[in-house]
Design a protein around this nucleic acid. Structure first.
Lengths: 254, 254
DNA sequence: TCTTGATAGTGACGTTACGTCATTTTATAT
DNA sequence: ATATAAAATGACGTAACGTCACTATCAAGA
């Protein structure tokens, strides 16, 4: 049995929050002192953590209350609703991040940012809203189906499919473990070295491979900040210059 | 000069919102009818769009008010604050998306989700909070420096740097244009084919290349849903089987 | 036992960005 | 002129607490 202060120390929530949760009946202290001070036990701490977690998922306190009481509640539709919300928010955040870093760069370069750029960006930021959403929803609904499509090929022992899938599995495994990017790079290189013609012939496989990164590329493909665009232009000129004047020197160099 | 209803039709905001903005002095109608009905002009529509945009970035109406009035306001620090906020939110959303799709998969497979998994996931979701944040902040602060580091190499005409940078520029350009992933794939393949030893010798370059994708990988490396983990395990077994029994057949095949 | 500083309690009002009535007034079409 | 649509105003409600203001309790030392 610990005091309210101890709870705040261990969980980071404020006293006011705990009082509020008590007030609305969400988290009722295990007991009280003679004087009426709240006392919390282990199970209350656990429940508080669950509350914090569910809150971080965007659920309201009212919803959390029913969730923690009523076990037969309609989880799935609520999760689905949450997922939609998340998708929307991620789209927005992607846009925001890009715009803001762009504006910051501009600011850093010129010492000021004026409203004019914002006006231009406003239009832009109101496009590209549905692509990622559609992608993710389809990804979820079709995800299992796609795996099932691939499995027969794997089980039939088709070597092409098998090796591709094996290498892809390695990539994902390394990614999952947070291994050095260099390692992943090596694996990808192996794929590309060995399976050039395989990829070209088999659209399904190459599509599957690129789907892994599709959503990620989407966020990049939506546009670049002004500053980067300038750099890109410069680099493109450099490319042409290089390809025209220096291409031959590369093979024999180093 | 259009009516308030027209404004709502063109911008999607509600009448109440416009009244509210008027009330707090954020967006004052251009004029009124004899009877006192609000009338809005072109410039008000523009300003309203700016307000909507800034609001979507998370600024409060009070902040927006000063931003649209006071041009010497401290843009930069505010944007920086926003960026921090965005980074936090994206971390959370990444976690959420993963957890929720995981839970949905689980639900779809078993027809139910119990609180037990949530408890387990609670702990997990409270880790990995700082990696992406640190990365993005450092990315921004060091971003310009890195470009400046690279520029001398480019300008000096070092062919290795030049070609790498040129190809990288092509990738980014294609990504920016939303070109088929296949196209990007081809370019990457060119890089990897031509620059194997270049990459191996030059850690800085390869690091730079992978930083482009680092944040994206991070979100994948944080963990996988149960269903995917199972598939991975299966694929790993397939890998071993394949490498042991069928490896030799590949070279001569097709 | 008494005092005292820290901790805790209880209202009650403030906050954000509007939503939602309820009621009255104005504009528009017939 | 009148019916109907649109608009105005004022006021209360919402979510999740923050922030006083004031009172009461706890733990520890004198």
């Amino acid at each position: 049995m610990i005091s309210i202060k101890e709870v705040t120390k261990q969980t980071g929530v404020t006293v006011r929050t705990l009082r509020h949760y008590h007030q609305i009946g969400l988290l009722i202290p295990a007991g009280k002192t003679d004087g009426g001070h709240r006392l919390y036990g282990e199970s209350e701490l656990k429940k508080l953590q669950e509350i914090q977690f569910l809150k971080s998922l965007g659920f309201t306190l009212k919803e959390i209350d029913t969730m923690l009481v009523d076990e037969d509640h309609d989880w799935f539709s609520r999760l689905q609703g949450q997922l939609k919300y998340i998708i929307r928010e991620k789209e927005k955040l992607d846009q925001m991040e890009k715009l803001i870093t762009g504006l910051m760069n501009e600011f850093a370069l010129e010492g000021k940012v004026d409203i004019h750029h914002i006006q231009q960006l406003t239009h832009f930021s109101q496009q590209n809203k549905f692509k990622r959403k559609e992608f993710l929803q389809q990804q979820f609904t079709e995800g299992k189906e796609k795996i099932n499509e691939l499995l027969p090929n794997i089980n039939s022992g088709d070597p092409d499919t098998l090796e591709w899938v094996a290498l892809l599995a390695q990539i994902k495994k390394h990614m999952a473990k947070g291994v050095d990017a260099i390692e992943v790079q090596r694996i990808i290189r192996r794929i590309l070295e060995k399976d050039q013609e395989l990829f070209e012939g088999n659209d399904e496989l190459s599509n599957a491979f690129w789907e892994v990164r599709k959503s990620q590329e989407k966020s990049q493909s939506a546009g670049l900040y002004p500053i980067e665009q300038e750099v890109l232009d410069f680099l493109e000129q450099a490319t042409e210059f290089f390809l025209k004047n220096e291409a031959r020197n590369i093979g024999g160099k180093k």
